[in-house]
Design a binder for these strands. Sequence first.
DNA 1: CTGTTAGCGCATTCAG
DNA 2: CTGAATGCGCTAACAG
Lengths: 360, 360
Amino acid sequence: MAKTTTVKGAVARHPTLLDIAKIAKVAPMTVSRVINDKGYVSAEVRKRVQRAIDKLEYHPNALARSLKSQRTHVVGILLPDIKNPFSAELAGSIQQVLLERGYSAFISTTEQSVQREQAALSAFFDHRVAGIVVATLETKSGDEALERFIRRGMPIVAVGREPGLAVVDRVTANHWRGAFDAVEHLISLGHQRIAYIGASAPHARRLRRFEGFCDALHEHGLAAREQWIVGPAEDSGPGYSTLADGYEAMQRLLTLSTRPTAILARNDFTAMGAMSAAREHGLAIPNDVAIVGFDNVPLAAFTTPPLTTVEQPTAEQGRRAAAMLLERIEGEVEGEHREVSFDCRLIVRASTQKAAECSE
Amino acid sequence: MAKTTTVKGAVARHPTLLDIAKIAKVAPMTVSRVINDKGYVSAEVRKRVQRAIDKLEYHPNALARSLKSQRTHVVGILLPDIKNPFSAELAGSIQQVLLERGYSAFISTTEQSVQREQAALSAFFDHRVAGIVVATLETKSGDEALERFIRRGMPIVAVGREPGLAVVDRVTANHWRGAFDAVEHLISLGHQRIAYIGASAPHARRLRRFEGFCDALHEHGLAAREQWIVGPAEDSGPGYSTLADGYEAMQRLLTLSTRPTAILARNDFTAMGAMSAAREHGLAIPNDVAIVGFDNVPLAAFTTPPLTTVEQPTAEQGRRAAAMLLERIEGEVEGEHREVSFDCRLIVRASTQKAAECSE
DNA sequence: CTGTTAGCGCATTCAG
DNA sequence: CTGAATGCGCTAACAG
């Protein structure tokens, strides 16, 4: 058990700069110069070093590098739920930009658990990520943690968040307007009894799209009946709403004596769940009940009938967020924190248009 | 610009063990003991140290720790495409297990690009991840990179991969059997002309589920017509097949003089795309054409008609893979590499059963 | 053009 | 029970 570094022959762990230096018979510093292509190194020596690097399949240790340089090339991405296709697309687009710029991503999801949120942020912190993209809903403890980061000067970009406490760059889409337009669309089709599904009132109030729903109704002299705002059970937390949630919500609506004639769903999956429930009850879409989704997931164009929905530019938000974060990290931008808001767009499909022929 | 560490008052960067030690008037080592709860520290001193830690919001630097200990608590996850719901669920389930055991995840996707694959694996390597879960399809360069890792003793678990070169633990589901059962189901319903959509022949051959399809046909004396195996354009790489792919594939099938009466789709999304195309052409499902998907994504139960599909236990595969990886990492298991195969299960829904009433 | 020195933040020796 | 020394792998700042 010699204490010396492994001699050739042994199945060494990771070779280090020093190993290379020895083989190439140069100083470690010179190897470093070759690797980083910094400073002058004679072609001769460079070649020798390169050969040693190739031979040992040497990869510089990013940990040591970061420890020395006091900066990492790792960005933390905090998402509510990776199974949510919105999150997935966001993550994908963020990563794409990061990768192009030589960064890697630490991805964590909170799954609606405060513990997980804390654990994730802690891990980001411990690993000294260069910056963070947060796309989760605000929570008290989460905001506190983020503020600690901010105090340490860590760049943060929030996606789809309210302008809360944290003084950070923000990227959003105008969900309020999107929902507003969707409701006006329904009203213009003659609907008066419009429901919102996907979030029960307490949680819904935190969603801009829900506000847009309420405001549009109000503007047209309609009321948002408590009965017609239905979401998952109160205690299930502020999660992404799913197919099953939409299905159940619709079922509940169908038991009411006064049923709504149109539905704005929190997202496309909720909408699809609702469509499924409606159909089971023998209702025709859009003739008996019109349904509007939110997000325009790829699938929305392929449902039966195709789903009217509010499109938000997900990938664009991700790309923009990543770009803004990198600007901060690399010090290209300083000072006042910026806000970027993208427009949503109503995409009208057959789930709301009263078709000429009696479909379904 | 004093060279000394920042005095109190300044908005310091990250405090270190030494900062804590100074404030608590102890040696750095003692602080380390408190943090790791290792060795004896008097309650008195412990309290003093803890106060300093809280005051400075000290978080140990994971980089320095790893450099010293020569091990990280980070696992690399390599996925084909995060937008693919199978990948997303896999990632989610893997992360869940990792988190419970105090590990974090470096997630990267290859997006069918060899460059991205290399970059991702390189990043894993550079950051000295403790282990890797790979769920991508085999590629030459990818396998080479993985072999380098293996030579360095890095634990790797492959999910859904062929028993290729790499000597690693493997977790799979029996796609062959799943597809086989699906085809037999169709045959038992009287179908003779069965198509496969979602991968063109060259790529399809790498998919076990495609083999199951062929073998089942063969076993029943049916032929796999070249015309009836249709996927995205040849040059689009071995990607996850999408809604649009399924839609186009179905359209192509519908132009044939002899149309298939049943379809096995590569996955549920391909199947949904196909359903959409069939419906546009005025075909009824399942009466004019029966469709079977693969994966049993949540949505499959909510399509019109609900989709018959082959379920694979995605989350279980992820959890198992994570558990196996951690066993290797923590040295609980050594030696021979293991294989775990989960069963797939055919879930029969209305997209194949000839319904009694004339639905649609 | 190349080598030497020193230290990033932490934890494993080994002494008190 | 606590402290001092040492080095993980790398690179900035200086020599030569």
